[in-house]
Amino acid sequence: MAPFPPHFIDAETATPLETADVVILPVPYEATTTYRKGCQHGPLALLQASDQLEHYDVELRQATCFKVGIAIAEAIADSSVDPDLTPEAMVDVVKAGVLPLLQAGKFVITLGGEHGITAGVVAAYQAAFTEPFTVVQIDAHGDLRHSYCGSIYNHACVMRRVMDLGIPSLPVAIRSICQEEADLIASQKIPVQWDHERGQDPDWIEEAIATITTESVFLTIDLDGLDPAIMPGVGTPQPGGLNWNQTTQFLRQLFTNRRVIGCDVMELAPLSDSVVSEFTAAKLVYKLIGYHALCNGRLD
């Protein structure tokens, strides 16, 4: 695998880790994917694609990257370097890698890699923050199975592990679950924003955010939550999902109405003959940085 770029967008915007406001943490781990493989290459592809982003954000009407220090942390849990790293051990490695960044006051955006990584990320947030928070999940799948293919840390189980930590969730754009997950959602009254219902409700964003009972939220984005028309490079695509404008509208309102304490962007599996997915994912990360900066007084 090629070395990770030392910056997001370009060298002109690079900031030392010690003084950065935002830290992007690559976690190129893949071990439990069950359909199309390749998400271990997602973090590198996203960072390389960010070189093609404009500094200026048309929506926010300013060049966010010159007002917010952005640094790239050293990659952790790289399955190309350590192919024998088990999912259980990976979760511990990720928690140990994320926690010092949070304790240093950084806004961390973790890049995967398979969605199982989020179990370690969320565990680090729970250790770092005393106040309760909700995990907002953009995803095509419920990811609520207790175990799958012999592991409770399979990518299809990550939100079940979040539930085990006693953390509430808000799943958005869900359109594929199994019977076990359907029963759990009903018994636990999880406020799932089903994709087919969202499409019929013009007020779905306000109604979804209103179900969040905590002031703070952690945002996990499995990129298959987006419409495969704009995000084809994922391991388990599903018809439907959020288009670009729906995604950014939801995210901006989420950042505006809640305190977003961190994010991750998972499951980018680059295609060999297209750069659409990695470029869109890079632009999505830039949006996350912009909305965080806007809601924390860093932008005009």
Rank of each mutant, 00 (worst) to 15 (best):
G116C: 07
H115F: 00
E278A: 04
P100H: 10
M163F: 09
I190G: 04
L294R: 14
F255C: 05
H155F: 02
A128S: 11
F8S: 07
Q103D: 06
L294K: 14
P87E: 08
Y35F: 13
G150C: 08
I230P: 03
E197V: 08
M159C: 02
P191I: 13
R259P: 00
G262V: 03
Q188E: 15
C39W: 02
D57G: 00
H55R: 11
L44R: 12
G42K: 02
A119I: 15
K37S: 10
L102A: 03
G42P: 00
G240V: 15
A75Q: 14
G297L: 10
K283W: 08
S216W: 09
I76E: 05
L144Y: 11
D227H: 07
E131I: 03
P228N: 06
K67Q: 15
N154F: 03
C149R: 14
D273N: 14
A89H: 06
R160M: 08
T130D: 13
R298F: 11
D227Q: 08
V172G: 05
A11E: 14
G38W: 06
G225T: 13
D183Y: 10
L46W: 00
E197F: 15
K106N: 00
N245Y: 13
V265Y: 08
T248C: 09
F129Y: 15
D21R: 13
Q238W: 02
A140M: 05
Y291M: 14
E131K: 14
G150M: 06
D21V: 13
Q249M: 12
D57T: 02
A293E: 09
Y291G: 12
V158S: 05
D51T: 11
D78H: 08
K189E: 15
I152H: 13
I70D: 13
D57Y: 01
K95H: 09
R61L: 02
I70N: 06
G199L: 15
C263G: 11
V192C: 11
L101W: 04
G105I: 02
A293Y: 00
L284N: 04
L251E: 00
C157N: 06
L46Q: 00
S277D: 04
M1L: 12
P270K: 02
T33W: 00
V108H: 01
F107A: 03
I72A: 12
A119F: 10
C39Y: 05
D224Q: 04
M163K: 06
V108D: 00
A210V: 09
F255P: 05
Q200A: 15
A96F: 04
V58Q: 09
I177F: 03
L47R: 01
C65G: 03
L144T: 07
A104E: 14
G42I: 04
T64W: 10
T32V: 11
Y29I: 03
R175C: 12
Q40A: 15
Y291V: 10
V23L: 07
E114Y: 06
V58N: 04
L85Q: 13
T64E: 10
P3K: 12
T13D: 07
I152M: 11
V136A: 02
R258L: 13
L85D: 12
P168A: 10
I190T: 09
C149A: 12
D164M: 08
L170H: 09
V58L: 11
H115W: 01
A208E: 03
P237R: 12
C157T: 09
P191Q: 11
Y56L: 04
A63Y: 06
Q52G: 01
P237Y: 13
T236M: 07
L299I: 13
V172Q: 11
P28M: 14
E74H: 12
V275H: 09
R298V: 06
H146I: 08
E54H: 12
Q253N: 12
T86G: 02
